[in-house]
Each structure stands twice: as C-alpha cells, then as structure tokens.
C-alpha cells in the first residue's frame, strides 16, 4: 500500500495582479500513496485550490505561472508533458471535481452529452456503448432513473444530483487519481454526507487515490487517511488523520483545532486565531505564520524544514527542531 502515486516537489506558483506578484505557493512538497484519500486543509486563499489545479495544469496563464517544481505522476513529470500527453492524462489518468456543481457543468448541453463526450474521448466506444456505460455510472452514484437524467440539462438537477453526475463523470475513465476541490462545500449539510459517502465508497471500490481539498476539519476527519495543513502558500504539517487530531503540533494547526466548537464545551465565544493572513505579495521571509504565532522567535525568520515528530507526522516549525531532523522521505 505504500507505492507513491503522486509526488509534488518544490512547487511554486505566482499570480501577477495589478498590485504586484503574489507568491501563492512557495516550494510546496507532498506525496500521495496509491489508494489513500489525502486531505489538504486550510483557509480560503492558502493556496490549496491552486495546488490542486496545478496538478492538472489548470492554472490560467497569465496571470498565473508555475515558477518551480515537479509534479510526478508515477514518476512522469506532468509539468513537462506536451499538450497531447496532457490531454490523455486529464480526465483519463487524473480527473477532477469542483466546488460549484452549479457552474462546473455546461448549461447548454445535456448531462448525457457531456458525459459521453468525455468517455468517447478517452475510450473507443460507439455512441450506444457510451450511453450504456453512462447509465451504469449514474446508477453507481445512486441517481435514480439514470436514463432520464442523461437527457436532462444541468439546471434541471439539484446541486447534490449535479455533484453526483460530476463524480460519475470523474470516475468514468477509471482514473488513478481523483482531485476533489471542495466537492461538498456548496451543498446542504444533509446532501454533503450522502455525496461524501458515495465518493469514499466508489474510490475505495475502484482503488482510486484521492487528493481531497477542503477547509472543513470535520470532513477531513470523516473521509481522509492522511492530511496536509496549509497556511499562506506553505505546507505546515503533514500527518495521519488520527495522529493530527490526537496531537496537532504546529501552532497554526493547534489554533485551527481550537476553532472547532464541540458540543460538550460551554463557551461564550468561539475561539479564533489572532491577527490576519499575511500579504502574499511581500510575505515574511521565513515562517509565514510568524506574525500570529505566540511562540515566534528570531529563528522563525528562516523557513523551517519539515521535522518528523512521530510516525508519519511532520511539522514545519522551529519549535520541533530539537527532534531528530528528517525531511519527509515518503
């Protein structure tokens, strides 16, 4: 189970705006093991979505630009792939579902039309065979009356149904990797649970690795095996989910955990982390959490490496420097 499927190495992405160039991702590294559901969690603007899109080279250029790094899918660098190779990777080896099920399907084509198009692009199927496959896929995401849904336009479906269509489409070509970019954020809480359940069940059945982007710690706990915490374009902590929830190490992660209200607590006010996210146009040179961190020291002006603090648990914080220094090797 420990074969590495996807490796992101030293990935940096910049966006140029009228106020300057924002370093949205700064030398980010991650590894996904085949078959796992890997969560990436962080606030809006921390770069998690940009990272997800970078894997499929979906960053609009300009204004975006990938300035360094490698993205290795089974050892093949996606950033070096030519357009043709890229198109066979997209939707086929790696597929993606998005946050807004409202707008991620084309409003002027039927669901069937869009699903068939993807299927026939990557598989040598005739129209009839493609249709049969689509119906089968829609059944697997538990959409009742699959045949009639194919003839419908996206606006005729509810948000949850649309997101299930997206899941069906994403899994239609049996990808190795599925990138789920906040797939349940826009849905009602009740629907969220159903969609998550379908997503986890099907990816497990098909042995699909998932890169799961979310800002919701609860969703992470529910679905993921391992998780990376991101802050302002840096990965600050990577751990098994159980380990992270049991003992968060990075001051930012701790703060984030403290913000999750629990039922048995009897607090007057919700906890929050003091201060604001730094400007990404001129970020602090070292740890980007420095301005909000209660433990900030002079050494924090240097960027910390990832220090191992336990089995499969790594933190980018100078507080843990005394621990045996070891860059994440997995």
């Amino acid at each position: 189970m420990s074969e590495i499927l996807l490796q992101i190495q030293d990935l940096s992405v910049e966006f140029s705006g009228y106020r300057g160039i924002a370093k949205v991702l700064d030398r980010v590294s991650l590894s996904l093991r085949a078959g796992e559901i890997f969560g990436v969690v962080g606030e809006t603007g921390c770069g998690k979505s940009v990272m997800a899109k970078s894997v499929l080279r979906l960053i609009p250029e300009p204004p975006g630009r990938i300035t360094s790094g490698r993205i290795l899918l089974r050892g093949e660098d996606i950033l070096q792939a030519d357009n043709r190779r890229l198109r066979t990777i997209r939707g086929n080896l790696v597929s993606m579902i998005f946050q807004e099920p409202m707008s991620s399907l084309n409003p002027v084509f039927t669901v069937g039309n869009q699903m068939r198009e993807v299927l026939q692009l990557h598989r040598p199927l005739d129209r009839h065979a493609a249709e049969t496959t689509c119906i089968d896929l829609l059944r697997r995401v538990q959409l009742p009356d699959a045949a009639s849904i194919l003839a419908k336009y996206p606006h005729e479906l509810s948000g949850g149904m649309r997101q299930r269509v997206m899941i069906a489409m994403a899994l239609s070509c049996d990808p190795d990797l599925l990138i789920a970019d906040e797939p349940t954020t826009a849905l009602d809480v009740t629907v969220q649970g159903q969609v998550l359940a379908i997503l986890t069940r099907l990816t497990k059945e098909q042995g699909v690795t998932v890169l799961f982007i979310t800002h919701d710690m609860g969703v992470v706990a529910q679905t993921c095996n391992r998780v990376a915490v991101m802050y302002a374009g840096h990965v600050v902590e990577v751990a098994e989910v159980t380990s992270l929830f049991a003992a968060p190490r990075h001051p930012y992660t701790k703060g984030l955990m403290a913000c999750i209200p629990t039922i048995d607590e009897d607090r007057e006010t919700l906890a929050s982390i003091a201060g604001t996210v730094p400007e990404l146009i001129a970020p602090p040179p070292g740890c980007r959490f420095i301005a909000r961190c209660p433990h900030a020291k002079a050494v924090c002006n240097e960027r910390p490496g990832l220090f191992s603090v336990g089995p499969d648990h790594f933190v980018a914080c100078h507080l843990y420097r005394s621990d045996r220094r070891q860059e994440e090797s997995t």
Binding site: K53, R87, R90, G91, N92, L121
Partner: peptide
C-alpha cells in the same frame, strides 16, 4: 472564464 470551461479542460478536451 466560466467554471465549466475549466471542467472541460480538466477532462482532456482540446
């Protein structure tokens, strides 16, 4: 600039 164009790209359409 719409999301569904990104979707189309993400699924390998030319």
């Amino acid at each position: 600039g719409q999301e569904f164009i990104t979707t189309a790209r993400a699924y390998g359409l030319s």
